[in-house]
Structure formats: C-alpha cells, structure tokens
C-alpha cells in the first residue's frame, strides 16, 4: 500500500490511491535533508568547533589549563551552586506543582504565571533585581553590611540568582503531568487509611518520578550553565566568585582560547551527559514511563 502510494505519487499519474502521510519522493528527501543541514549547521558544527579548539594543542595542554587554580575554583563553585540550587528547586517545584495541580484556590492562575516569570524575564534583569534588593543603596543593604552579611558579589548572591532563574524547570515539568493524573489515586490511598505523608511518598512521588527526573536534569543543566543573572551578581572576583560560564568569558576575553574552550568543553560535556542519561533512562524504563502516562 505504502509502496503503491509512493510510486503513484512518484509518477504523478493519479492522486486516487495515496496515503495521507506519503509525499513526493523529492519532497521527502528534500525536507529530511533540510532538517539534517539545519541540525548540522546549528548544533553539530558549533559543538565540534568547541572540542577541536580545546584540543588544538593536544590533550596535554587541555588538562594543564583545566588544573589552573582559578579554573579549578570556578568548577568547584559551579558544582556548589548547582548542588544547592537544584535540591531547593526540586522541593519548591514539587510543592508548587502539587498545590497547582491538586487543589483549587484563589489566585491559582496568578501563581502559575508567577512560576513562569523567570522564563519570560531576561536573566540579566533577574540579576539586576537582586542588586536592587541587596545593593548598598537598597533598603536592607546597609543593614546587611553592618551585620557583616555579604550577599552580592559572593556565593549567596550567585545561589539566589541561580535558584531564581532555574525555578520553573521542575514545576513546569510536573504541573501538566500531575494535572493529567488527577487526584483519584491520592483519594484511593487516603480511603485505604494512608496518611498524607504516606500518600505522597508511596503514591504521588512514584507517579511523577520520571517527569521529576527530567525536570531535575534540565534544572541542573541550566543551573550550571547560567550566565546572565550570575554575571550581574557575581562581581567577577577571580578564584572566588567566578562560575564556569563566567570563567569561559574571562579566559576568552584574555585571548586564552585553549583554556576558554577547554572549560567550554566541560559545559558541553555536561549537556551531552544529561542527554545521554535521559535517553538511557527512557530506554531502560520505557515501559514504566509509558504506563505512568497511560493507565
């Protein structure tokens, strides 16, 4: 049938027998080619460029520049920031999605919009907000200063900015999933005598675990890669408040291309690992994932 349709379409004799999804052969290959070109040009090529630039002077130099103390401190800071921001947003995300998907309350639409705010605001603006909040000219700035609490141009500011920017990832992933699943599973658990906590732990959480994992992976990738907001609040103190993306910029601006691309490689690898991890999980648990969406 499909073969028939293709040959009919190919010779252009008749339009009578034609499967809706079968296009002219030229059109099909043309479209596929176009898509591949696009992917190659905008995704594969830049990625390859990053790796070749990093390896330009051989793997020896690659590892030498990475063991530079400033670069090392940037990697450490990035891991610390992600290590704080991701768990926080995991908890916030679940709580927000739970509230929005399972309960009816006034201001629900407003809350949903609010969760999306970090997505719709430029990251630079997000950073500026924290400067306005905690800067020396702000209301609480002098108070913080007199108590020796350093938020801006220090780790707390970077963590705050990162938490803000990555807030929507987990919640956004979970809200549609939880809404689709409804509340009857929870009601069933309650009717069987389960406490609220048991219901969450044994019923709600297992139902959302795949969506949650995906949200966490995305959240983590963004937390490690965030540039704009962090750049504004970090102060760029070398060896202290530079995260990996900031370090890339500094190295690049100093024409230290190999080092810049070496750090960029690590960030790119993070993206690749995230994707591979996600695909592996999807492959291994495809049945469970399908079941948790179906049912």
């Amino acid at each position: 049938m499909a073969h028939d349709a293709a040959s009919h379409g190919g010779t252009g004799n008749t339009e009578l027998v034609r499967v809706a999804t079968s296009e002219h052969r030229l059109a099909r290959y043309g479209l596929i080619g176009l898509a591949l070109c696009f992917v190659g040009l905008f995704l594969v090529l830049p990625l390859a460029a990053v790796f070749t630039e990093a390896m330009r002077n051989g793997p020896g130099e690659f590892f030498t520049v990475l063991s530079d103390p400033e670069t090392f401190s940037a990697i450490r800071l990035t891991l610390i920031v992600a290590g704080i921001a991701v768990p926080l947003n995991l908890v916030f995300g679940i709580a927000a999605a739970w509230a929005i998907a399972k309960f009816e309350f006034k201001g629900k639409a407003f809350l949903t919009t609010l969760i999306d705010l970090p997505f719709s605001v430029s990251p630079v603006i997000s950073g500026m907000v924290f400067i306005l909040l905690f800067g020396s000219h702000s209301l609480i700035g002098p108070w913080l200063q007199s108590h020796g609490i350093q938020i801006l141009f220090a780790v707390p500011g970077i963590v705050l900015a990162t938490v803000f920017v990555t807030f929507p990832f987990v919640a956004r992933e979970l809200i549609p999933l939880m809404q689709e699943q409804g509340t009857s599973d929870e009601e069933a658990a309650l009717s069987l005598g389960a406490s609220g906590w048991q219901t969450f732990w044994y019923v709600t959480l297992p139902n959302i675990k795949w969506g949650l994992l995906y949200g966490v992976l995305l959240c983590n990738a963004r937390a490690m890669g965030e540039f704009g907001a962090v750049s504004v609040v970090s102060g760029h103190i070398r060896g202290l408040t530079n995260t990996m993306p900031l370090q890339v910029e500094i190295l690049y601006n100093e024409y230290n291309f190999v080092a810049a691309f070496a750090v960029a490689t690590l960030l790119a690898l993070l993206a690749l690992v995230t994707l591979v991890l996600k695909s592996l999980l999807e492959m291994k648990y495809s049945e469970q994932i399908a079941a948790s969406r179906r049912h």
């Binding site: 009857s184 599973d185 009601e187 069933a188 658990a189 309650l190 009717s191 069987l192 005598g193 389960a194 406490s195 044994y202 019923v203 297992p206 139902n207 469970q288 079941a291 948790s292 049912h295």
Partner: peptide, 28 residues
C-alpha cells in the same frame, strides 16, 4: 476519610500503576 475505614472503588479504577497487583491489594 482515613479514620472511617471504608472501601472506595473509583470509576477509573485509580490503581497504583507502579505497584504490582499484589502490592495494590496489600496497600491498605
């Protein structure tokens, strides 16, 4: 609802999809 000790059966079953049939029945 927990204290009333009732059995409730839902139109769309509401079985716990990540548990086996045996675990579902034993849940309560």
């Amino acid at each position: 609802v927990q204290q009333r000790n009732i059995g409730f059966v839902f139109q769309h079953y509401a079985l716990f999809r990540h548990m086996t049939v045996l675990d579902n029945v034993s849940f309560g």
